[in-house]
């Protein structure tokens, strides 16, 4: 019988920080750009700190900036768009259950604040190797939070010195980021039709409806199309 490896929470925490370091640098670079664009969208330093610190979810923060119009903020549609963009995290925190299952529920729920793409991916990779723990996950999460917080603030302060971001192509950072995230989600040909349906629905509704509702319309129509096709296929397999 194998003796369980001695569990050293502090060592695990630092291991998480060490392994996550290169990823954190990439997050920070991305955060600086978000901060510059946030300043351009009219967010104050305090608003940047609050959003990065409390929401702590890059893709949805990019979407929020895209919709941010100070003076007449589309409050409800920004919150709905945030929820839809972040819905993928339901599946991530569900798969982390075995990792935190032994903790008292309030503490387990507390750790879930740190769930995001990169930390989740790295922790799951360690789980597969058999040596991840809550402390490891927290190490990656804490480092990621500080990297995101610091870099978005730096970007916001530096951004005050850039008068016209479009001159440097920075306005395209949104499209480039969303494209990269989209390609990263490609799981095979089954994604093609839902993506095309979503794109088409978004283009049509952006012409018909004021504001940014096209994101929500396209996201819902496209994902329903994907689910319909997939369940229809499964049924045919069963039959």
């Amino acid at each position: 019988m194998h003796a369980p490896a001695p569990y050293d929470a502090r060592a695990q925490f630092w291991l998480g920080i060490r392994l996550f370091f290169p990823v954190a640098i990439s997050i920070a670079a991305y955060g600086v750009v978000w901060g510059v664009l946030a300043g351009q969208a009219g967010l104050s330093v305090l608003e940047v700190a609050l959003m990065s610190g409390l929401v702590f979810a890059g893709a949805s923060q990019f979407v929020a900036l895209d919709m941010w119009t100070p003076g007449s903020l589309p409050v409800l549609s920004i919150i709905i768009a945030t929820a839809i963009v972040n819905l993928r995290m339901v599946l991530m925190s569900a798969t982390l259950r075995p990792l935190v299952g032994h903790l008292p529920l309030p503490r387990a729920l507390g750790t879930m604040f740190f769930v995001s793409d990169e930390q989740w991916a790295m922790t799951m990779a360690e789980v597969r190797k058999g040596n991840a723990s809550v402390a490891f996950f927290l190490g990656t999460g804490v480092l990621s939070w500080f990297a995101w917080m610091a870099s978005t603030l730096v970007g916001r302060v530096l951004g005050a010195f850039i008068d016209d971001p479009a001159r440097y192509g920075l306005d395209f950072a949104f499209t480039a980021t969303f494209l990269a995230l989209l390609f990263g989600m490609w799981r095979g040909r089954g994604d093609l039709i839902p993506w095309l349906v979503a794109a088409l629905a978004a283009i049509v509704s952006s012409r018909l409806i004021e504001g940014n509702w096209y994101i929500i319309v396209g996201g819902l129509v496209g994902s329903f199309a994907g689910a319909l096709i997939e369940t229809a296929k499964e049924r045919r397999h069963v039959a």
């Binding site: 993928r88 496209g222 994902s223 689910a227």
Partner: peptide, 25 residues
Amino acid sequence: TGFVASWLKHVPGAVLASLVAPAVL
């Protein structure tokens, strides 16, 4: 498995596709 699971799985890609499509077009 089933419709809801499949729907959840397809949401992120569909949202991102709707974000970029009008901008690129």
